[in-house]
């Protein structure tokens, strides 16, 4: 029975994940390394899509780090009315289709939308420009950092922070000297996951991008465009960069998971010792 289950899982993993992943690299490299490299760097629009993704994803991640730490702290450390509701709301972007997220933004910032005419009058571009891409990406990846931090902060508990405050630490001192070192691995894990999700985001970004080649096309949009233009080697080359990112994320994530787990176990051991 066990063997059958394991074999089944491996089969499904192989067919659904490993074979397509290997195929992406195989197709990308089918013309040889030189062709692969040219597909990535010779086309100005492809180059720009890589550059754009490298701007949009870190900005979205930065926004979510600030938000994630604040939200996790509020939820893990304080009891206040609406706390459960807030926890549920953090997960909302995971439940909503990314396309709908894009449409939210169009309804708010679009020329026919709520803020659109005012923005146009003041010559501020949000959708169909980088701010819109960052907003869409940040919205979709909103829960990632907070979701990672809440269990870590709850497991570690407030004892050390209380001790720091009682010894005269100010808020910022306590955060940077006590809280941050405690949550750093969980935070890093959240950042990596958030970044991977941000770089690969398609649905919400597709709605607010306007699909201008060499201006608002991120890597996932570029893959689609190249594919539709019958440029298979080009499409697979860009796809392989995204896939490599996924593989790197997976490796780092596994390493960090191991690290956080042993940290949590150590913290738990220490709490247990403190109680006896």
């Amino acid at each position: 029975m066990r063997i059958a289950l394991v074999a089944f899982t491996i089969l499904v993993m192989g067919v659904l994940i490993v074979i397509p992943l290997v195929n992406v690299f195989y197709q990308a490299l089918a013309g040889g390394g030189g062709v692969y490299w040219r597909n990535l760097v010779a086309d100005a629009d492809t180059r720009h899509s890589i550059y754009l993704t490298l701007i949009v994803a870190p900005l979205a991640v930065a926004a979510n780090v600030v938000f994630g730490v604040a939200a996790a702290w509020a939820i893990a450390r304080f009891r206040f009315p609406g706390r459960t509701l807030l926890t549920a709301f953090i997960d909302l972007p995971f439940a909503v289709s990314p396309v709908v997220v894009g449409l939210f933004l169009v309804l708010i910032f679009g020329l026919q939308g709520f803020l659109g005419p005012w923005l146009r009058a003041h010559d501020i571009k949000v959708i169909f420009a980088i701010p819109g891409l960052v907003l869409a990406t940040a919205f979709v990846t909103f829960p990632v950092v907070a979701r990672e931090l809440i269990p870590v902060m709850e497991a570690i508990g407030a004892d050390e922070e209380v001790a720091a405050v009682s010894l005269g630490a100010r808020g910022w001192q306590m955060f940077s000297r006590v809280t941050l070192p405690n949550i750093k691995w969980g935070l890093l894990y959240g950042i990596i996951l958030c970044n991977a999700r941000a770089m690969g985001e398609f649905g919400a970004v597709a709605v607010v991008s306007g699909r201008i080649s060499g201006q608002t096309d991120t890597m996932p949009l570029r893959v689609e465009k190249l594919f539709q233009e019958y440029n298979m080697p080009g499409a697979f080359a860009v796809a392989s960069v995204l896939a490599s990112l996924a593989v790197v994320t997976l490796l780092v994530k596994t390493g960090l998971e191991w690290k956080t787990r042993s940290d949590l176990a150590a913290a738990a051991r220490e709490t247990a010792r403190g109680k006896t």
Binding site: F109, G110, L111, R120, I127, G210, I212
Partner: peptide, 20 residues
């Protein structure tokens, strides 16, 4: 000169929504 391509109706919608 920049280009943007997509379904004709979708593209019209984007211009109406502020694609410049």
């Amino acid at each position: 000169i920049k280009q943007s391509h997509g379904g004709s109706g979708t593209q019209a919608r984007a211009v109406i929504d502020g694609l410049e």
